[in-house]
Nucleic acid binder design. Sequence first.
RNA 1: GUGGGCGUAGCUCAAUGGUUAGAGCGCUGGACUGUGACUCCAGAGGCUGGGGGUUCGAAACCCCUCGUCCACCCCA
Length: 419
Amino acid sequence: MNITAIRGFNDILPGESEVFRLIESEAGRVFSSYGYSEIRLPVVEKTELFSRSIGETTDIVEKEMYTFPDRHGDSLTLRPEGTASAVRAYIEHKLYTLPVARLYYTGPMFRYERPQKGRYRQFYQVGAECLGDDSPRSDAEALSMLMTFFERLELKGATLQINSLGCAQCRPAYKERLKAFLAGRVDSLCENCRRRIGANPLRALDCKSHGCMEATKDAPSIIESLCQPCSVHFEAVRARLRLSGVEAKINARMVRGLDYYTRTTFEIIAEGLGSQNAVAAGGRYDRLVAELGGPETPCFGFAIGMERLALIIREGVPVRPLGVFIALGSPAEEKGAALLKDWRDKGLKLTEDFSTGQLRNRMKRADRLGARYVVILGPDELGQGVVTFKDMASAFQEKLPWDGVPARVLRGAIGAVES
RNA sequence: GUGGGCGUAGCUCAAUGGUUAGAGCGCUGGACUGUGACUCCAGAGGCUGGGGGUUCGAAACCCCUCGUCCACCCCA
């Protein structure tokens, strides 16, 4: 085999694809029950959109984007995340004329990183953005919607951590305080953190190196440094979450890797993912729309990592039981065509075996295809207007009149019927 | 970008530097001319990831390279 998929780009094969479909359809169901509508966004945007919204000095923009010139020389980029595109579309189509826009999207994102467990160069996200509302209830609503979604998927052991990064009023002051604090202990910081003290001292807070963890133990807390409005907002979000029965742990050291966040940020941590343990994350971004040329618009949004979620949600996605149809001889094949059409129209999931060997081998093929039942039409059955209907799990078989097959399958005797 | 583990049949894995690289599962066919899973028999399937080197002799040892997994960085 000479040509293989490129590194970090994976095929999602049958077996796995059902889980992805389940995640997407459940997300659509839950989100739309909160008034969210789907927006389909392009996978490629002008590079500038991402560098301006995510931040010039972030890792994503500095070294993880798939950027290339198109034939006119414009610099294009495969989207590394969805929020920037959603905001661009919001402004471009003047969706701000609505009182509030609740949007969700799903699809592939691209980042040039070394692949490892739960991290790939092409990865899928489901994201949601609520644009045009500054109420803390909006933060809480999105969070409890997300938790509801996880409940629907029977996700166990997911914990919600929240933080507030403040706003243009209070963050700069905090940054200075932290810088001053860190400056006193440069020696114990890791090389990386030393370098970023100037541009992004907050990063030192969630650095995993021992020295940094030790050095920042008594660092000033951002939560305690919030200005009055931000502090009120944060407390209101927490109160609202309690009301909805959502447990949230404060993590004052949680820092986001994208520059546009303000006030509330959060992460949902799941077990069983190795070191890439955030299955969903997001927060408030009150400045981004204005920074990209739209009107002042407060927003809240998040994204869910689909392959990470797929790694941990329960197995055994319900699928409709598969039937295999076996015709013996040309007359039966001809009659079978009409019967299959009718049965499929009535909702059965049936595949036909086109092989011609011994019935024994054809049964074997049906078994290998995962057939829950087999429908056999041979010369005998043809004469009597029946089929031989066999339940593969119990080995029980019976003769059924042609129009009796759908009822036999659909009444559930063959297992749960679900799409 | 950095570090480590692993690359042998479709899959999971064997094989002190020494004949013709094996096993289980799967696949194809038969025993059994209309009944799968169990049993038995036969068969197909490999440039041992690729390239170079050491050696009388390499799947094995050395170098390079590619792929993959895990971790770091960072993130969903």
